[in-house]
Design a protein around this nucleic acid. Structure first.
Lengths: 153, 153
DNA sequence: TCCAAATGATACCATAATTGTATCATTTGT
DNA sequence: ACAAATGATACAATTATGGTATCATTTGGA
C-alpha cells in the first residue's frame, strides 16, 4: 500500500512569498491624491512644490506623474514662474478607472487566455467567460468612483 | 493672459507603457490547468512527465508549482517509480481564489491604504470603503469558480 | 540488490515591472 | 536678467515574474 509523502511544516517554497495582489499601484495612488488636491483647489494653479508639501510624495516621481496626466489631457499645465497644474476636466468626470488605465494599462484578468484564438487549453473558455463577467462588473463599479466623489471625502 | 502648455503628440512618457493589469499570473494559470487535468483523472496518479506532455508547461516550473500545491495540502504526492500527484481534496471544493492565494498572496486592492492606521491621506478612507466593497464582491464571485466547474468544461 | 523513475528541497538566474532620481532645456512673470 | 516653474528624458535600485539546474531521497521492479 502506497501512501502520500508527508506535508512539510511551514517550509516556504518561495514562488511568490511576500507578494499580495494589489490592484492599485503606487503611481495611481499618488495620482489620485494629487488629483483630489487639485480638485479641492480648482480656483488656483497648484505647483509641484505645494503638492509635495501637502501630500508628501517624492518630488521627481510626482513631477513625472503630473506630466503624464497632462499629456493625457487630464491636467492643464502652466510653465514659468507662478506656474503649475490645474484640472482640465471636471473632477466628476474623471473616474478612478481612467486614472488606473493611465498608469496601469488596460485591464485584463489573464493575458494567457487572450493569446491565440480561444486558447489551446480546454478549460480556458469556461474560465474566461466567468472571469470576464467578474471583470466587467468590477470595472463598472470602479468606473463609478470619480475624483469628484473622492475629493468631497 | 496665460495659456496652458501644449499637449504633445503621441509621445510616450514611459511610466508603465506596455503593462496591463492582470489578475491571474502565469503560475496560477498553470496550476489551474494542472489541477483540472488531475481532476479529470482522479482515478490515477499523474506524473510530471505526463502533465508536461498534456499541458505543454515548462517542466521545472511545473514541478515547483506542484510541489507547492502539495505543501499546501491541495495535492497528494507519491514519490518513487510510478509516483506522481493526485487530488487531496474534492475538485468542487477547491476554488480559484484559493489557488490564486497560493501563488499570488492575499488580495489587497491597495497596500498603501492599509499601512498606517487609517492612512494619513484624507481621501483614502472614502476610497478605501468603496474599493473594499468592490473587492469583496469580486472575491465572492471568484470564490464561486471551482476546479470542479472548470474541469467539467 | 541495484537501478531507473519519480518527487523533495533548494539555489540560482534572466527579464521586466515598479518606484523612483537626476539633469538639462524651455518658458514665463517680475 | 533671473528665478521659478514645467518638459523631456536618461538612469538606477529594488522587487516580482517566470523560469533552470542540481542534488538528495524514495520506491517499484528486474
Amino acid at each position: 500500500m502506497r501512501h502520500p509523502a508527508q506535508i512539510g511544516v511551514a517550509r516556504v517554497l518561495s514562488l511568490r512569498t511576500r507578494g499580495s495582489m494589489k490592484l492599485i499601484t503606487r503611481d495611481t495612488d499618488y495620482a489620485v491624491r494629487a488629483l483630489c488636491y487639485l480638485a479641492k483647489h480648482r480656483e488656483r494653479t497648484i505647483s509641484v512644490p505645494e503638492l509635495v508639501k501637502a501630500l508628501e510624495i517624492p518630488r521627481p516621481f510626482l513631477r513625472k506623474i503630473l506630466q503624464l496626466l497632462h499629456n493625457k489631457g487630464i491636467l492643464k499645465a502652466y510653465k514659468g514662474k507662478g506656474g503649475g497644474f490645474s484640472m482640465a476636466i471636471s473632477p466628476g468626470r474623471i473616474s478612478l478607472i481612467e486614472v488606473m488605465r493611465v498608469f496601469q494599462g488596460q485591464f485584463s484578468l489573464n493575458e494567457c487566455l487572450f493569446k491565440k484564438e480561444c486558447c489551446p487549453r480546454r478549460y480556458s473558455c469556461g474560465l474566461r467567460k466567468k472571469i470576464m463577467e467578474i471583470e466587467r462588473q468590477a470595472l463598472k463599479d470602479i468606473g463609478k468612483i470619480t475624483i469628484g466623489n473622492l475629493a468631497r471625502d
